[in-house]
């Protein structure tokens, strides 16, 4: 950070405006649609496919990201919050993956 950056930071603190009902209703709609697709897929033959788990994980990750970015305002808020959360999340995911490998639940290749 440059010399005066810490001081100037203060002026930048007021973050971009939060979304309103206009966006929120779309966010809610998307979340509902993805959840519905998740549950629907569970009852189709696709459930036996090797792509089933990755697909569900991708949909779940999308919901996760939508809530965090819009409902929790991370997309609009100060970068400090983004770093705090993303850093911790990466650490948590790393530990989770490492444990799954160590207990042979996941295998390389």
């Amino acid at each position: 950070m440059s010399d005066s950056a810490a001081i100037v930071d203060r002026a930048h603190a007021d973050h971009k405006a939060h979304p309103t009902w206009k966006q929120y209703k779309w966010v809610a709609l998307w979340l509902t649609v993805i959840t519905a697709v998740e549950v629907w897929v569970y009852y189709t033959p696709f459930r036996e496919s090797p792509l089933f788990a990755p697909t569900l994980l991708a949909m779940s990750a999308a919901k996760f990201a939508i809530v965090v970015m819009f409902y929790m305002h991370l997309k609009y808020d100060h970068w400090v919050f983004r770093r705090l959360f993303v850093g911790s999340l990466v650490a948590a995911m790393g530990i989770l993956m490492a444990l799954l490998f160590l207990f042979s639940k996941l295998k390389i290749g």
Binding site: A11, V80, S88, M93, I95
Partner: peptide, 28 residues
């Protein structure tokens, strides 16, 4: 304050980071 942010909000995000590890341990 250095950043003009709110103390309690920084604390809450830090706590949420910690909670990520809590649930990562449980889910693993």
């Amino acid at each position: 304050t250095t950043t003009g942010l709110e103390n309690r909000k920084i604390a809450m995000w830090t706590l949420i980071g910690s909670e990520c590890m809590i649930f990562a341990s449980l889910i693993s």
